[in-house]
Amino acid sequence: MPLKILIIDDDAKLQALLRDYFQNNSFEVHSALRGDEGVDTLIRGAFDMVILDIMLPDMDGFETLRAIRKTSDLPVLMLTARGDETDRIVGLEMGADDYLQKPFNPRELLARIKAILRRTQPQARAEKPASGVIHSSGVGIDPLRRRIWIGAQEIHLSTVEFDILLALVQAKGKVITRDHLMTLVRGRDFEAFDRSIDVHVSRIRKKIEDDPAKPRRILTVWGKGYRWPEM
Rank of each mutant, 00 (worst) to 15 (best):
M78L: 12
D163N: 14
L65P: 01
L42E: 14
E161H: 06
E127C: 05
G38C: 03
M231T: 07
E161V: 08
E93D: 15
K102L: 06
H200I: 11
F162T: 07
L3M: 05
G140S: 11
D179I: 06
L18F: 09
E85T: 01
L181K: 08
I68L: 08
I51K: 05
I113W: 00
D87F: 04
K207S: 13
L184R: 15
A124C: 15
L74W: 01
E154C: 09
R203I: 00
D142H: 07
S202M: 05
A192S: 06
E127H: 03
L166N: 08
I7P: 05
M182G: 14
L65C: 06
G223Q: 06
P75V: 02
V201H: 04
A46Y: 03
K4P: 10
G132P: 14
I208W: 03
Q123M: 08
T64D: 10
R112Q: 11
E154I: 02
L56D: 04
N24M: 08
L184D: 08
L56A: 05
K13R: 15
R34H: 13
A46P: 02
L79G: 08
I155C: 14
D179C: 00
G223C: 07
D60M: 03
R186H: 14
S26Y: 11
K207H: 06
K224L: 05
G38M: 03
R66K: 10
I150Y: 02
D179V: 02
R188Y: 01
P215Q: 06
R69N: 09
V39P: 14
R195E: 02
I7M: 07
R112I: 07
L18Q: 06
Q153K: 13
K224V: 00
V76Y: 02
D84E: 14
A96V: 05
L144F: 11
E28Y: 01
L117F: 02
A192Y: 12
A96N: 02
R205N: 11
K70A: 09
L181W: 00
Y21L: 01
E108F: 04
D48H: 11
R203H: 01
P129H: 12
I204G: 14
N25Y: 12
I208H: 08
E230A: 07
D53H: 09
R119Q: 15
I68M: 07
P75W: 03
P143N: 03
S136Q: 09
R205I: 05
I89D: 09
K174G: 10
D60F: 03
V199K: 04
R44W: 00
A67T: 00
N24W: 13
T120M: 01
V133K: 04
F193I: 00
R88G: 00
Y226K: 10
I150T: 10
M182V: 01
P212C: 06
L56T: 05
L100I: 15
